[in-house]
């Protein structure tokens, strides 16, 4: 294949990959980006979501449809998780990041090991008719297993953006992100807004889980390699910027695809980390964040 072909294909698959990363990072963009809760367990929740989708798929359900239905229990799970978190720390007035980080780290670990104990360490995947097929336009070939989940992201982002800018709940969430005290004066309970946001982020995790497992097989430790990526996306975007998340994710996806194509696939996991460190070192406010 010619160089230009390779580059075009890398660009296409990178963009699709990036779109999927955006979906993976979306929940974190809410919890960490808006609420500053460093939820390092988010990728583990995504992987748990992927397993739930795989289970449903075992009974013949379409992964995306299953994920859509699973958003409800995951939302409730998120509410419970946040309630536990805030009871443990925020309400007692000692929500220092040292302890909450440790808690989330512990939770991620328990999820991983829980999955190992329940399902073993084998890779799991879903079977859908379109996996294995590809779309070819000119000399660019893109497998549907990338294309389909990649198309979910813009829809989710649009929905989320409309929610945040057009609805009462979304405005309250952004207000909490901006200034918690002002909101409590105006009579809205910030902790209920945050609980709701956490539920939302957890519901997004199951959608991301479906996208993840359509893209490729998943094992209980997949979250490890995702963690650097999703934090790189959120930090590069600038904390709290939802549209920025997509741009940052696509940049990272394309960078990884180019490294995969022109260097070696085995180096790809390092790309996001390099971008994360580079961003922190050079422009910590990210591409779209306000300087602090």
């Amino acid at each position: 294949m010619m160089l230009i072909d390779l580059a075009a294909n890398a660009l296409a698959s990178g963009a699709a990959l990036g779109s999927i990363y955006a979906l993976l990072a979306m929940g974190l963009a809410i919890t960490f980006g808006l609420l500053h809760v460093p939820n390092v367990a988010h990728p583990a929740i995504v992987v748990a979501g992927a397993y739930a989708v795989a289970l449903a798929n075992g009974y013949g359900a379409d992964p995306l449809l299953a994920a859509l239905l699973l958003t409800v229990p995951f939302y409730v799970l998120g509410l419970g998780f946040y309630t536990f978190y805030s009871r443990a720390f925020e309400l007692r007035g000692r929500g220092n990041s040292l302890q909450s980080l440790t808690l989330f780290f512990g939770v991620a670990l328990v999820i991983e090991i829980g999955l190992v104990i329940a399902f073993g360490t084998d890779l799991r995947s879903v079977s859908v008719p379109y996996v294995g097929q590809s779309l070819s336009v000119g000399f660019v070939t893109l497998p549907y297993r990338f294309l389909v989940p990649a198309l979910v992201t813009p829809a989710v982002i649009l929905a989320l953006w409309l929610y945040l800018t057009r609805t009462h709940g979304g405005l309250a969430l952004r207000a909490v992100a901006h200034d918690e005290r002002a909101l409590s004066i105006s009579g809205i309970d910030p902790s209920s807004v945050k609980r709701h946001a956490f539920g939302l982020a957890t519901a997004l995790a199951v959608l991301a889980g479906a996208a993840l497992i359509i893209t490729g097989p998943v094992d209980p430790f997949t979250d490890r390699s995702l963690l650097g990526r999703v934090f790189a996306v959120v930090v590069l975007a600038g904390l709290g910027s939802i549209p920025g998340t997509l741009v940052a994710a696509v940049l990272i996806g394309v960078a990884e695809a180019f490294v995969t194509t022109f260097v070696s696939p085995s180096w790809a996991p390092g790309v996001a980390f390099a971008i994360l460190l580079g961003t922190l070192g050079l422009r910590p406010s990210g591409l779209f964040g306000a300087s602090r």
Partner: peptide, 28 residues
């Protein structure tokens, strides 16, 4: 040096990702 100038959270996140990177380097 790369992460501590901002917030402690970023240092922790970077150390998490560092494991993956070093493992990748050794693998390769």
């Amino acid at each position: 040096y790369l992460t501590l100038r901002i917030q402690g959270v970023y240092f922790s996140i970077a150390t998490l990702a560092l494991v993956v990177v070093l493992e990748t380097v050794v693998h390769n």
